[in-house]
Simulated scan of single mutants.
Amino acid sequence: MTARCLRGLATLGLALMAGVLAAPAQAQNAAPPDEGNPFVNIFKYGGTTKPPEAPPSPDDVYCPIIDVAEGGSSLQTMAGGTVRTQIRLGQLSRSCQPGPNGGTIVSIGVQGMVLLGPGGAPGRFNAPVTVTVKNGTQIIARRSRQGSATIPAGQASGSFTVVEDGISVPANLARDFEIEVGLGSSPKPGRAPRRKPAASAPADG
């Protein structure tokens, strides 16, 4: 066999070897991700396709305990200088569900009692309840509702229930908000104090 033939065979062998070594790398680069490989999906997910992403579990949603506003646990109504009724908060409950765009939907339930005082008489009474969802001093939502309690003749108390739902907390505050409940109407924003006019400088004598 001539030297030219030997050189040709050696060149062909090197080319074939290079092709074999390059083939696995090319196949690896061209392979689809695991989610698109039915064979791999059988072992990972138990089927040929990747299952859809599960919705967030309500158990994973942040839901803080309810705070009672300062001075908001009870409220008295007066009649002629005498206590007509005393309103008291009772059981408080809350529920938080995943909302759109990573937010949270909050529902709050309030139960309470209306008690007759010395100046009261049986009848129907309103119990003002304010629910506030906030982040520090930032108010996310504030709602005021009137609960209704009926005290029949011969009884000294009646119960009321208020439910506030559909309160939306945005995603950027969904892990850092507070819930506050209190008796009484929503507080009005305070007026900014008036600035005193600057004293005029005394005239030169």
Rank of each mutant, 00 (worst) to 15 (best):
V163A: 14
L116P: 06
P118A: 06
P122Y: 08
A174I: 07
V131Q: 01
G147D: 08
M113W: 09
G99L: 05
G123N: 04
D176K: 12
V133P: 01
S148C: 09
N135C: 08
E178Q: 15
V133Y: 00
N126M: 13
G166Q: 09
R145M: 12
G112K: 01
T132I: 05
N101Q: 14
G158Q: 01
G154M: 05
V114F: 03
A149W: 04
G117I: 01
R143L: 14
I151G: 02
G112S: 04
N126H: 10
L116W: 06
R175L: 11
Q111N: 13
V129T: 04
G119N: 03
T130R: 02
L173P: 07
E180Y: 09
V162P: 03
S168V: 15
I105D: 10
G158W: 00
V114L: 03
A171N: 08
P122H: 10
P152G: 06
N172M: 14
M113Y: 09
G120V: 03
A141H: 14
Q155Y: 13
T150V: 15
E180T: 14
P152Q: 08
D165W: 11
V162W: 02
T161F: 10
A156M: 11
L183F: 04
D176A: 14
I139M: 11
V114N: 00
T137Q: 15
R142I: 03
V131R: 00
V110T: 07
G123Q: 04
V169M: 00
P122N: 11
E178F: 07
L173N: 09
E180V: 15
F177Y: 14
P152Y: 06
I151F: 05
T104H: 02
D165S: 15
L116D: 06
A127Q: 00
S107E: 08
L116A: 07
V106N: 01
G158T: 01
S157L: 13
N172F: 15
N101M: 12
R175D: 13
Q155F: 14
S159F: 11
G182S: 05
S159K: 13
T130W: 03
A121P: 08
F125V: 10
E178P: 04
G166C: 08
G154A: 05
G112N: 01
P170S: 07
G154C: 06
P152T: 08
I108R: 00
S148Y: 09
R124A: 12
L116I: 06
G136P: 02
G123A: 07
V106G: 02
G109H: 04
N172T: 11
P118W: 03
A156I: 12
F160D: 03
A153P: 09
I139R: 11
G112T: 04
S159L: 12
I108K: 01
I140Q: 03
R124M: 12
T161K: 14
I108E: 00
V163N: 15
N172S: 13
N172I: 12
A174N: 07
V110A: 01
A121D: 10
G120I: 03
S144H: 11
T137P: 10
E164D: 13
G102C: 09
N135E: 11
